[in-house]
């Protein structure tokens, strides 16, 4: 895939290039280059199949990573395009004009990560959740266990003992 990297580099400013497998590479680009790069990949490099679009929350860095994974079936290779956007007030350009199906992905990202895609069809409609009031659940700082415990009743009567402390307590009741 070296050839592809070379060709793309002539076209766009490429960031970090990670060759994961012989047939799979990831590349980072700036958000303003994304649309052009995807269009180029689709129209000129044969990456016609949008496999998925998803986000990764790098909470520590204050960034979302959007991954656009594309597949070129004829050449049997995949490329994942990464775009890093700030977590605060996250929004991104919609690509539903390139792939209509991307609108679904963008709806999900809007709901699950709180990333806005202005202009994407039905992006503000509820998708999976209904009546959700907390922060978008796929964000790293959302604690699902805590939420579940506060929200839903659990069956009482569960206690567990730590073998280490239990043994100490039983065998050395005075703590020695």
């Amino acid at each position: 895939m070296q050839d592809l990297q070379t060709r793309l580099a002539q076209h766009t400013d490429l960031g970090e290039w990670t060759q994961q497998r012989a047939d799979l590479a990831f590349v980072t680009v700036a958000r303003e280059h994304l649309h052009g790069l995807l269009r180029h990949l689709r129209d000129h490099e044969g990456f016609t199949h949008l496999v998925l679009l998803t986000a990764v929350d790098w909470l520590e860095d204050g960034q979302f990573q959007l991954t656009y994974l594309m597949n070129n079936r004829a050449a049997a290779r995949d490329i994942g395009v990464r775009v890093l956007i700030p977590r605060e007030g996250a929004d991104m350009d919609s690509i539903h004009d390139l792939w209509p199906t991307a609108a679904t992905y963008q709806r999900e990202l809007r709901e699950m990560f709180g990333i806005d895609f202005p202009g994407s069809p039905r992006v503000d409609e509820e998708f999976i959740l209904e009546g959700w009031r907390d922060m978008p659940p796929y964000r790293r700082d959302f604690d699902t266990l805590k939420y579940a415990q506060e929200e839903f009743a659990e069956r009482p009567g569960r206690v567990s003992k730590d073998p280490e402390t239990h043994m100490k307590q039983k065998l050395y009741p005075d703590g020695a």
Binding site: L129, P137, F142, T144, L145, A148, F152, A153, E154, R155
Partner: peptide
Amino acid sequence: TINGGMYWDSYNTIKKLDE
């Protein structure tokens, strides 16, 4: 349905049906 099953820590499933 009894005690949340393997989704005991999920934010979107109920845990005790009899509630």
